[in-house]
Design a binder for these strands. Structure first.
Length: 362
DNA sequence: CATGCCGGGTG
DNA sequence: CACCCGGCATG
C-alpha cells in the first residue's frame, strides 16, 4: 500500500523532475510584461494570454477611452492578417465550380429560377461535406504553444487557435485587381465592415483599443483585429451566414467568436465560396420576399434563414458538430501520459483530480 | 482497452 | 474550498 510513493530523492538529486519551479497554475493573475526567461523549463507555457484584451473589451464602445495609459511598448509582431488560405487550389476549384455552373443546362435555359433546383445543389453539397471530414489535427497544439512561449505577444481577442488560424500562412495577400476589398473587424462582438484599411484601423483604435493618439504612428496592433474580405467571394460568404443555420460555416454571425469551430484554415474558405454562387436570394429578402422559392426546394434548408435571427446557432448544429463541441480532446500529452501512472505526484493537481489538465493546456 | 475530464460527491 | 471518483466520451 505504501509502495506508491516513490522515495522522492529530495530536490536536486539524481533526476530532478522536469517541472522544476516551473509555474503555478494559480499564479496566472498578474502578468509581468517581460517574462523572466530565467531557467526556463521546456514546457513552461506563457500562461493564458490576454488579460488586458479582455479588459478593454468590457467597457465596450464609447466609454473605452477612460484611461489612455499608453500600452507598454508592445512587442513587435509580424503584421499579418488576411486569414485566407493558399490561393492556388482555391482558384482552381473556384474556376472549376464556375465552369461547371456555366455549363449547367439550367443556366442556358431558365436563368431566373434555375438556381435553386437540384443539379446546382450537388456541387455545394459535396463541398460542404469535404471540410468536415478533413480535420488536420496534427500539430497545431504545440505549434502555437512553442510559438507563444517567446516574449509576450500582444494578445488578440482571439484564442490561440484562432491566432494560428490567422497567422498560419504568412504572405498570401493577393487578389485580382478587379475585386473590391472590404475590411472586417474581428473584435468579439463587433464584426464591423469598412471599405478602407485605414478606416478599419481607426475604428479599432478608437472603439476597441480605446486610444486615439498616435494615429499614423500606430504599432500596427490594429492589424490583428481585422481581416480583409474580397467582395464577390467572402462578402457573399458573409451573406451566407444569415442564410444557412445548419451549415458549419454559418454558425458565425457578424462577429467571429466561433473560430474554434473551423479548425482547418483553408478548406472551409473554399466551399464557402461555392455556395454563394448557387444561392440566389439575398439574405434579407429571402425572409420576407419569396417564401415560395423556399418551399419549392425543401432540400435546401437555408431558406429557414429567418430562424437564424435568434441568437442561438448552437442547437442548430448537427450531431457531428455537436460532438466536436464536446471538446475535441487535446492532442498534447497530458500529465498522465508524460509522467505515467506511477508518478502521479508529479501531475498537476487538475490531472490528479481528473479535471482538465492545467499544465499542458491544448 | 487507455485516456481525458465532466459532473457530482465527500471532508 | 481541496480532494476524490464514477462514469462517459473519445481514440
Amino acid at each position: 500500500m505504501e509502495a506508491e510513493r516513490p522515495p522522492a530523492p529530495g530536490p536536486g538529486c539524481g533526476g530532478p523532475p522536469p517541472r522544476a519551479a516551473g509555474r503555478d497554475p494559480a499564479a496566472t493573475l498578474v502578468s509581468v510584461p517581460a517574462p523572466p526567461q530565467g531557467p526556463a523549463v521546456e514546457f513552461a507555457l506563457p500562461q493564458e494570454p490576454e488579460p488586458r484584451a479582455a479588459d478593454l473589451g468590457a467597457p465596450g464602445a464609447g466609454a473605452g477611452a477612460a484611461g489612455p495609459r499608453a500600452p507598454l511598448a508592445h512587442v513587435p509582431v509580424p503584421v499579418h492578417r488576411a486569414p485566407r488560405g493558399k490561393a492556388q487550389p482555391d482558384e482552381v476549384m473556384a474556376a472549376a465550380a464556375l465552369t461547371s455552373l456555366s455549363t449547367s443546362p439550367l443556366l442556358l435555359g431558365a436563368p431566373a429560377v434555375a438556381f435553386s433546383t437540384e443539379p446546382s445543389l450537388e456541387p455545394w453539397k459535396e463541398a460542404l461535406v469535404r471540410p468536415l471530414s478533413s480535420c488536420s489535427s496534427g500539430d497545431w497544439g504545440w505549434d502555437v504553444a512553442s510559438d507563444q512561449s517567446s516574449p509576450s505577444t500582444p494578445s488578440p481577442p482571439l484564442p490561440p487557435e484562432a491566432a494560428h488560424f490567422l497567422f498560419g500562412e504568412p504572405a498570401l495577400r493577393k487578389r485580382k485587381s478587379s475585386l473590391q476589398v472590404l475590411f472586417q473587424c474581428l473584435w468579439k462582438r463587433c464584426g464591423k465592415v469598412l471599405s478602407t484599411a485605414s478606416g478599419m484601423q481607426r475604428h479599432i483604435r478608437l472603439v476597441h483599443l480605446g486610444r486615439q493618439a498616435e494615429p499614423e504612428q500606430s504599432d500596427g496592433e490594429e492589424d490583428f483585429y481585422y481581416t480583409e474580405l474580397d467582395v464577390g467571394m467572402d462578402s457573399l460568404t458573409e451573406g451566407l451566414f444569415s442564410l444557412t443555420p445548419g451549415s458549419p460555416t454559418a454558425s458565425i454571425p457578424p462577429s467571429f467568436p466561433r473560430l474554434e469551430l473551423l479548425e482547418p484554415p483553408e478548406p472551409p474558405a473554399l466551399p464557402t465560396l461555392l455556395h454563394p454562387l448557387a444561392l440566389p436570394p439575398p439574405p434579407v429578402l429571402s425572409s420576407a420576399a419569396s417564401p415560395q422559392v423556399c418551399h419549392s426546394d425543401h432540400a435546401y434548408q437555408g431558406c429557414q434563414a429567418p430562424t437564424l435571427l435568434e441568437p442561438q446557432p448552437t442547437p442548430a448544429l448537427p450531431a457531428k458538430l455537436g460532438a466536436s463541441l464536446r471538446k475535441p480532446r487535446g492532442d498534447a500529452k497530458k500529465c498522465r501520459k508524460v509522467y505515467g501512472m506511477d508518478h502521479r505526484d508529479l501531475w498537476c493537481t487538475a490531472c490528479r483530480w481528473k479535471k482538465a489538465c492545467q499544465r499542458f493546456l491544448d
